[in-house]
Design a protein around this nucleic acid. Structure first.
Lengths: 131, 131
DNA sequence: CTGTATCCCACCGGATACTG
DNA sequence: CAGTATCCGGTGGGATACAG
């Protein structure tokens, strides 16, 4: 990413090099840790930093911050800072982010049943220890 | 990819730690380079190793092999070896892999229009150099 | 509470060369 | 042609400590 002049997310759609129109979406939505963050935000609504960290149990504050910043920059998440003592920050899915919901549902639906097939394929490929 | 001893793809669906039912799918389908490989296979049908490498222009043979092996193990791609001289190997999407097509179409559809919004969000976040 | 700042290491993937 | 074998550098992310 980030090389010469200004490769935007959109023009990568037509980039001949990859010739894969969904690569940019994958970079934005499915890079490491972004899916759990988005999903948690989608499943539990607006919530604070600590709630997110607790729910995405193995994530460190550093990484969580990085992902949240990226998602905020991409317009998928909205950050609200409340200048109180102690400070309170809330995150929520943006309107744009919400348009991903059907996609996630689709993913989730595919997982049902097909994940099992993947497991079976792996076992068979590995020499079928369970038979 | 790091699926050694116990945790299968399927049981990660119910793993409390992530509590994100689509994470396993993301690991399988959207890890690095897998999307371009699957897309190219989907777009151009059964093809040989070199064709794939040529179409996914920046991929190295080593990485291409790794991804193809992974996809074959997961049952998403079928490898056919023809014992000729010189050897000929063909790859194609499996039946299971084909069930991903609607999903990819969905992704592609989301990209249309929304990618542009992401770009705008980024420019605004970065300080809007184009205004 | 909500992050930053460092240190550090494992691993991915690029480059290159070589084999059946 | 279809890979494998090595070397190797950059980077993501874990652990830990600290700041506003």
């Amino acid at each position: 990413m980030a090389d010469d002049a200004a490769p935007t997310a959109a023009d990568r759609t037509t980039e001949p090099a990859l010739a894969c129109p969904i690569s940019p979406v994958v970079d934005i939505v499915f890079s490491r840790w972004t899916t759990p963050v988005l999903w948690t935000l989608h499943a539990h609504g607006r919530q604070r930093f600590m709630e997110l960290q607790r729910r995405i149990s193995r994530i460190t504050p550093k990484v969580l911050t990085q992902r949240l910043r990226q998602l905020e920059r991409d317009g998928l998440v909205v950050r609200t800072y409340h200048p109180e003592v102690p400070p309170r920050v809330e995150y929520e899915i943006s309107e744009l982010g919400r348009t991903l919901a059907p996609l996630f549902a689709h993913l989730s639906e595919w997982a049902t049943g097909n994940l099992e097939k993947v497991d079976r394929a792996r076992r068979e490929y590995d020499g079928d220890p369970a038979r």
